[in-house]
Design a protein around this nucleic acid. Structure first.
Lengths: 239, 239
DNA sequence: CGCTGCTTTGAAGCCCTTCAAACCAGGTGG
DNA sequence: CCACCTGGTTTGAAGGGCTTCAAAGCAGCG
């Protein structure tokens, strides 16, 4: 059931059979959520974390004028809110962008992992630090990259992250988001996202339509985005 | 020596005398760095973390055109790169913005903490998750807030964070940064930062000059920034 | 007293937003 | 089976917030 999560972890470190079992033992209830469903609200006390099995989630914050900023996208195999284990409540909301299948992991069982499996605990710690690395890369995009580069960079990031769990090739992947969703990731208006997507299409770099990303020229796309996958920590080593 | 770090941790959870001792036992060499000194470079293997005792540090990424984005500021009491414990190398650089006094903490000794002090390990994990929360708030600023709001929000954040370690009052705190430094935090040009600071001054909200922030109207400043300190997790509870 | 780094100000321009409306595909119901 | 509705996409025109370029002002210091 958590094969994609294991793929993600094992791309970064060795996970023993015993540790794999400890993870399985930590699993709780499996749930199916519809699209556009906010299932974690900022400030609310949490006693379990959410491991995404299928679909796409996002973390987001709302502003007073109705604007929204998505701070991270989550794909299958990601813990959406592992950080709630130490934070106890979150500073942001989490919602589904597509229909999603998730499995809950009670914090009580995560606590046991920190007590009985220090290495696995460090790997989980690593994985929250990986989320922070993604945040940092988004800060760079939002602060310093042009609209075209931001969009290109996001597609590059998703191609790698989905590739790790077998959901993307060099040429394409499914991405059932709207242009509004993308705009909320990129700090742009959906109108401008539309124009940027048009330019990426005309430059024969990438095509985003009918819920798919078709990459015409991955090298060119990465060049435009100045994409360096180092921030995704794909080197496998002891954590 | 690490009293400010303990103040920071104890604002979020209880730290026992035994845990405090474990932290002291983990300390290594104390170093003094000059201002504008990059002492951690992206990609370089690390075997120790850096606890800031005095001064201001920043994490930053450089872009090909010479632009720079600062992704977080660090104040006394912060671990600047505790996340390198699980990441092993970083995706960003770390530099001093002022002269700084730091103490190194070998990863080997942090590993021992994860094995012998699970609760303290969770508190340290929490503290890297707090950095991620700050990243998210910056994403919101960079993606959705106006230049004026971004600057106001940063001052509010620093007032709280410095206040926790006794380095800020409701009315003022030392901040020996240049307008160029601020611009690199805020995703703006230094020219525009200058205009924004002028407006904050004219609106009688906050004055930034000669290395100090003088807050004329904290409530008004927070209103302009739409500042909510919840993302700093100041509620004390078991982690 | 002149250098250096930082701050301040002005003028022009551009990237992205705003506002508005048309277009399009998929699903529903008469 | 088409008319209609709805959510999403596309395009145009005008405007604004921030950048760019340029230069002057200013404080600290050797």
């Amino acid at each position: 059931m958590i094969d994609k999560h294991l793929m993600k972890l094992r791309a970064r470190d060795d996970i023993s059979a015993e540790e794999e079992q400890a993870l399985y033992d930590a699993l709780g209830e499996v749930l199916h959520y519809p699209a556009d469903h906010t299932f974690i609200t900022a400030g609310k006390e949490l006693d379990r974390s959410t491991l995404l099995l299928e679909g796409i989630l996002c973390r987001y914050k709302d502003l007073s004028d109705g604007e929204r900023q998505i701070t991270e996208l989550h794909v299958a195999g990601d813990f959406a809110d592992l950080h709630s284990f130490t934070l106890k409540h979150l500073d942001h909301n989490v919602m589904t962008l597509t229909p999603a299948k998730i499995v809950q992991v009670p914090h009580e069982r995560l606590k046991r992992i920190t007590e009985q499996h220090p290495h696995l605990a460090r790997v989980l710690w690593f994985s929250t630090n990986l989320d922070a690395a993604i945040h940092r890369e988004w800060e760079v995009s939002l602060g310093r990259r042009s609209a075209l580069q931001r969009a290109a960079h996001l597609f590059c990031e998703l191609q790698v992250r989905l590739g790790i769990v077998g959901l993307a090739t060099e040429h394409e992947f499914a991405l059932p988001l709207t242009q509004v969703d993308l705009a909320e990731c990129l700090g742009l208006t959906s109108v401008h996202v539309n124009r940027v997507l048009k330019e990426l299409r005309e430059r024969k770099l990438v095509e985003f339509r009918s819920s798919r990303v078709a990459i015409a020229d991955l090298a060119g796309l990465r060049r435009v985005a100045e994409f360096d996958p180092a921030f995704l920590y794909l080197d496998k080593r002891a954590r």
